[in-house]
Design a protein around this nucleic acid. Structure first.
Lengths: 151, 151
DNA sequence: GCGTGCATACTCGGATATAAGCTGTCCGAGTAGAGGGGG
DNA sequence: CCCCCTCTACTCGGACAGCTTATATCCGAGTATGCACGC
């Protein structure tokens, strides 16, 4: 199991945006973090599709958060980048092969699927317990504006 | 994020092995579940490398569990198939680019990495709370032996 | 009748092709702002 | 002095290759069993 590397980039970008006083272009965000500009742009598009950020076009445009940082959880960002499909997908093996169960015994979900789903719920609940505001608390807005202003 | 499809196969196989009275060949396990024989064999090798099952060679050989089913957790199987590396790997973005932090401020792990690691711990803890014995409770050993005996 | 040796068929194990998804890149469409000209 | 038009430069957005990883497969090495033979 591997999480897309873009998740880390997107989280750092959201933290920066939460403390920025004006929209920040995607190329600028890439420079701030030392990552690929074009590839980061792709992930920012995903954040925009999920409704977490809004793109301002034209000169002096860029990305900005659509909500208060305290209203955006880490889970929101992870799902925007990595998709909201569960990591484990039950293929109903219990109904296949020689050991197949009759359909009347398959009204309730497979026990294996239940365990995996419950674990993912724990994972999501944990991620939803931290917001962008929490992560951005240690970032000095003055320092950010100074770095952004020079650009 | 996507979990290897082999995890589901491996879990079902472990449940069968926990209720079987003799070693079961990999080809037989594949027929029981209606999946690819050769590919399942690959995953069973992974279980053997992890020490969860033991392969008996030669005629009437096959796979058997090495421990009591109650001593094998779902997490053990997941890590055997999918690897024990964390899904999120911090690349220390905070130390790269124009917004890089000085090394003396990076003694403690990055806040983002901490959140992701804690979520994975919750996920693993949940998976470790169920054993193969729990999953196999609903499988009738008599029926299994009947299906295996016909082979 | 019993022990031994052998042939056999069955098992696993690793090395090998194929497909999918993530990673990374490029160029075109659209827009907000700045500057110049006219009223 | 104010308003309007144009022009430019900058932004995003989707379409296009490269590469690592997961998926699926094949064939060879090794071994426990069953049988035949000799004692």
């Amino acid at each position: 199991m591997k999480l897309s590397g873009g998740v880390e980039w997107a989280l750092h970008c959201c933290v920066v945006l939460s403390r920025a006083s004006a929209p920040v272009p995607s190329a600028r965000l890439a420079e701030l973090h030392g990552v690929s500009k074009t590839y980061l742009a792709k992930h920012l598009q995903a954040l925009a599709r999920a409704g977490l950020v809004r793109a301002a076009e034209g000169r002096d445009g860029g990305y900005a958060l659509t909500r208060e940082p305290a209203a955006i959880t880490v889970l929101d960002v992870v799902e925007a980048i990595d998709g909201d499909q569960p990591a484990f997908r039950c293929t109903e093996i219990r109904q296949q092969g020689e050991l197949a169960l009759p359909p009347e015994e398959c009204r309730v979900p497979c026990g294996i699927a239940r365990v995996m789903a419950e674990a993912e719920r724990s994972w999501r609940r944990s991620l939803a317990g931290t917001t962008i505001a929490d992560l951005g608390a240690s970032l000095d807005p003055a320092r950010l504006d100074r770095v952004l202003g020079r650009g």
